[in-house]
């Protein structure tokens, strides 16, 4: 019964600027797709197009075989059965948690709505908080109410706009796990808009990377991380070190790096190996949590490495390094 939510060649312009430019994106039922991009990339606009909060200028959006948006024709948001979850929760301040959840259940009748709302609150671990008003709830509780409210009417799809970035970092993980489990269980297409690559990788099944209104790459989270199409995509998914071809220290890679190209490597791809002929000097060495971050100078080129604390060298030491081929990419230079 669950169907795909699909955008085909969608564009949206504000005056002369094109905010979303020819995006095609297929959201699969039961899968969470992360839409990753910096601010101004067009993520929120794309979400609003899916939600029916804005009309599109080109392309079409379909839910299964039902046409939702086409130029000049927009099924209004209130008729789409697409749930929305916002960064600021957007709970109705004058309604209790239970009343908030029951808001979308008007057609079920009062008694049924109350039962369903109670079930959803229980599912998200909020049983005791049913009669609390939003301002009496903690941030994490508010967000779980918002999720219950969006899921209770059994929407055909769900869209989340930076849903967890308003939360305390200590809380974020557990709220996210509860929320995403409930969403996966619903078996509907889900879109998670985020600017945080770690969140995108941790929470989603598929990733789509948006930049300047265009979709750069989409695919399974693991594939996009391990096989980025460009240096920009590799950088969008986490920190990287970049060295352009002519500056390459001798012997650093097994492959040849052609003149007009650059090497991109993830910090965990820079491996300490005393048998390697390639030497580097440790400029700084700092414990940053589970791992130690090394800033290396390798024949005048800067490299960042993440290594376990136990084996981490001190600043000033000279070490041998090699690159993990799975985490090392060679692209045509952007400027060539």
């Amino acid at each position: 019964m669950s169907v795909h939510l699909t955008a085909r060649n969608v564009s949206r312009r504000y005056g002369v600027s094109t905010v979303v430019n020819g995006v095609s994106l297929d959201l699969e039922p039961g899968k969470i797709t992360a839409l990753l991009g910096g601010s101004g990339a067009g993520k929120s606009t794309l979400l609003r197009l899916f939600a029916g909060l804005e009309p599109l200028d080109e392309g079409e959006i379909r839910l299964g075989d039902q046409m939702l948006s086409a130029p000049g024709k927009t099924v209004p948001a209130e008729k789409r059965r697409i749930g929305l979850i916002f960064q600021d929760f957007a709970l109705f301040p004058h309604l209790t948690a239970a009343q908030n959840v029951a808001f979308g259940l008007k057609s079920r009748g009062k008694a049924a709505a109350r039962t369903i709302a109670a079930e959803w609150l229980a599912r998200l671990g909020l049983t005791g908080r049913a009669d609390a008003y939003p301002h009496e709830l903690s941030g994490g509780e508010q967000q779980r109410v918002a999720i219950a409210r969006a899921l209770a009417p059994e929407p055909a799809a769900i869209l989340m706009d930076e849903p967890f970035s308003g939360l305390d970092p200590a809380l974020r993980g557990s709220v996210r796990d509860t929320a995403l489990a409930a969403i996966r269980e619903a078996g509907i297409p889900a879109l998670l808009v985020t600017h945080d690559p770690t969140e995108a990788l941790e929470s989603s099944d598929a990733i789509a990377i948006l930049q300047g209104g265009r979709l750069l790459q989409q695919g399974l989270a693991r594939d996009v991380y391990l096989k980025p199409d460009s240096a920009a995509i590799a950088a969008a998914l986490g920190p990287v070190s970049r060295i352009s071809g002519p500056d390459m220290p001798a012997g650093l890679t097994g492959q040849a790096v052609p003149a007009g190209s650059e090497l991109v490597v993830r910090p965990e791809g820079v491996v300490q190996d005393e048998t390697s002929p390639v030497r580097a000097t440790v400029v700084t060495s700092q414990l940053t949590g589970p791992l130690c971050r090394l800033l290396l100078d390798c024949a005048g080129q800067e490299l960042v490495a993440l290594v376990p604390r136990m084996t981490a060298p001190k600043a000033g030491a000279e070490i041998g390094i090699r690159l993990d081929p799975a985490l090392t990419f060679i692209f045509q230079s952007a400027d060539s």
């Binding site: 948001a77 209130e78 789409r80 697409i82 957007a90 808001f103």
Partner: peptide, 12 residues
Amino acid sequence: CALEAARSLGAS
């Protein structure tokens, strides 16, 4: 956002 949430919940 609250008004948009209400829309997504089918409120006229």
